[in-house]
Amino acid sequence: MSAFAELWSSLKSVRGAGLVDAQALRSFSIFSDLSRQQAEKLNDHLHERRFQAGEVIFDRGQNGHALYLIRAGDVSVQYWDGKTDQEVARLATGDFFGEVALLCDEVGRTAKVVALTECRCLALFRESLNHISIRDPALGVLVYRDISSALAQRLSNITKSIDGEVKVVGAPAT
């Protein structure tokens, strides 16, 4: 897409409706237990981004502030093995990545994430989550619990992988 065409597309997309509706937000596995009202509140704090195939969404070591939910498309999670970037997981619609930066202020991005196809992602920022936790502690606790559970599941997968119990792990923490 030419630079002017992309600029025009960005301007046109402003007129489109907001992000996802509450029902669609609850279709993400980590937020499936939110009520409709809670999903609506959370929805106010999400920002949609579009990435083109091959675009680096974020790189290892970068300052990170947000978690991304994949609304559409596929991404590749890559780790640096000292020589090249090795793909360790592929994530698709409904998955999420970038949770480490959401939870830890001082830790930069731990992996590189690249869009494999044209992607639409929803970004949830740490600042927004802090804001939600102050304004609506019940929702804040629920969101933190959901993200922590998913993170614990990923950690458990990695532990099993190290122990040699499973060869293919799920998505690593990003």
């Binding site: 301007l11 997309s13 990170g64 502030h65 970004a123 804001h131």
Partner: peptide, 28 residues
């Protein structure tokens, strides 16, 4: 909201996170 969306849409992806954090903190 439309103005905010316009600004966010026009932000290149690589500056998106930094800009959002600065914007949110400055607004607060």
């Amino acid at each position: 909201r439309s103005l905010k969306k316009l600004v966010i849409q026009l932000l290149p992806n690589r500056y998106f996170e930094s800009f959002m954090v600065i914007g949110t903190r400055a607004g607060a």
